[in-house]
Amino acid sequence: MDWLTLSPEEWIAVRLSLKVALWATFASMPVGLAIAWLLARREFWGKSLLNGIIHLPLVLPPVVTGYLLLLSFGRKGPAGAFLEQHFGIVFSFRWTGAALACAVMGFPLMVRAMRLSIEAVDRRLEAAASTLGAAPVLVFLTVTLPLALPGVIAGMILTFARAMGEFGATITFVSNIPGETQTLPSAIYTFTQVPGGDAGAMRLTLVALVISLVALLVSEAVARRASRAVAA
């Protein structure tokens, strides 16, 4: 069983991956929810364009998305320079950049799941809430969100799982620096590039399998509980 024991470096990659994926999921959640609501419930100019832009990472090669992130959020990129100057936030070659890349790649999945679940909420219930005195924000928080919760959670789990597996955009944007930007997939990739790395690659693969499986089971359980609460 000795070969199953992770080396300190491998542990670092696993922990970093979890941190990056959790940040990517939770930081993008409020934005994803807001955009999902806009797309589900409002008509506005440029709606299809917004929808298209959000879905781009799904169809673009991940390397292209990573390179675009490098151009815009790199130290010399317009967004990157602005954020560093005004907020001291640096993305390039940091774990934060990996989280950003993962969030962007997972965003279409998140918005799609949330949008569908919001669209499924009966608008007549929202109208009833407004006649009872609830302002639009409160209608969303007390009626729409609770009823859409299974989809919202599903969207977050999808994003988390996507983030755990993100490779192309991350390695292009923030490279493969052990301890900083070397996530699980990058570490596995590195192992496969060196002689005698098979055992390490296998160990990390097992870890990735377990994490993905657990994420899926948790999402199933949470969604089932949420939909039961709604149906009851």
Partner: peptide, 15 residues
């Protein structure tokens, strides 16, 4: 508006 609206299809909040 502070109107109490009773709809044909009760519209109770299921959750």
């Amino acid at each position: 508006r502070r109107v109490g609206y009773v709809f044909q299809d009760a519209r109770l909040f299921p959750h």
